[in-house]
Nucleic acid binder design. Sequence first.
DNA 1: TGTACATCAGTGAACGCGCGTTCACTGATGTAC
DNA 2: TGTACATCAGTGAACGCGCGTTCACTGATGTAC
Lengths: 238, 238
Amino acid sequence: MSAPRTARERVRAELTREIKEVARQQLAGAGAAGLSLRAVARELGMVSSALYRYFPSRDELLTALIIDAYDAVGAVAEAADAGCPRDDLGGRWLAVCRAVRDWAIEHPHEYALIYGSPVPGYRAPQDTIGPATRLTLVLGRLLQDGAAMPADSFPPAPAPVRADATRLRDSAFPGAPVELVARGLIARTHLFGAISLELFGHHNNVIEDHQAFFDHAMTCTALFVGMPPRTRKRRGGA
Amino acid sequence: MSAPRTARERVRAELTREIKEVARQQLAGAGAAGLSLRAVARELGMVSSALYRYFPSRDELLTALIIDAYDAVGAVAEAADAGCPRDDLGGRWLAVCRAVRDWAIEHPHEYALIYGSPVPGYRAPQDTIGPATRLTLVLGRLLQDGAAMPADSFPPAPAPVRADATRLRDSAFPGAPVELVARGLIARTHLFGAISLELFGHHNNVIEDHQAFFDHAMTCTALFVGMPPRTRKRRGGA
DNA sequence: TGTACATCAGTGAACGCGCGTTCACTGATGTAC
DNA sequence: TGTACATCAGTGAACGCGCGTTCACTGATGTAC
């Protein structure tokens, strides 16, 4: 992805971007399963076969969208984390959670694409693994920075969980205490559980102030896994 | 749904059942978005227009599948709860969680249908609300039975969350303390977060012993929301 | 118990639409000398 | 700077397939007298 040189290369990069953009909009209407190359081409005023100059198949286009989505959510998480004082672990956790939720609410169909039900008939290639890890790394850094956190009321993980956590620690978070890695994995399920239930409509008719409930739930998780809170203010703007 | 009398009525009920059964199988291949009346009819050796004697449209068939799925998950949860001593709140919680997870693993596409990304273009009618509530009621009964549980380390819910919890309490769980209802809502996000992340592939390459991780996560949640554990044995059979 | 009529299940053809992908092609853009 | 050739983007037609839904119909099952 180095800087394009010739006019042709610049136009090509731009059109590739536009194709993905239009495809993203179409996700909203028909979902990933209904994403149609012909519809995308129509929207762009092209003939459908022309898209094959840019993506060798429909699945490759889907893959590109998935990678972009993982990258986008990873980016907002990184930015949110970077905006907090390093030693405010609870604040960093909450900021990252809010950033992910905000992104999900702004891009519900992209969220569904990566964290919702798998697209039938689609097998994710290896290329998606890297970008998918980006958010996990942000959360992992929180764990590493909080290595001295007290275990307190948290029950010890049983052996098989410790084994999995050890493997993850060794491959991605060297130096982090195993118990902490296990707690991080649990915190992750809390985050996505809260976002998915809300986004997929299971809080309808039950919760009205979604933001408040989410903040409360994530604050509880922070306390539970041992990340001391220091701020509960909501940062401004969308 | 009273007992069918005439032969015609019996055959009709049976065929209705078969249509749904075949449709459920097809969910696995193409997902909810790709569910095809023609394919179902083909599988049954009928002509596609014949299905319109049983379901007025594709969406109505989908609705029936959704209702059945909510009912099925509600039923296994009820059975799991009923199999535990009333005063073992932690045991009941864990049993219900495991029952839901087991059902989800056995019926991943039905789980995705109700707890995964919404089906594009489909609007759930009112009929689905009742069955959807069934599982919630099981969890709610746990809260009511545990009314005396200690609040301990759990942070108090902020005002908007208390307001939502109060509304839910008044409409569905009379007598339950508001703080407990709020904790129940949070516990619910933990449950579905754990199942969804696992089922939708986000634990791949990370967690090997899914059962152990799930049990640990749900046990932590039980402790956190104040349901004392008494058993951690896994019951036999599927 | 038997007959006349109404109800219902299933058929087959049709309407009008959509899709992914391939292929031979035209014409414009870029490259090498 | 100019020309010859190679690369590439986009076209338009075609292949072969699928879909939900409607409609007039046949023939079997059920009901009322």
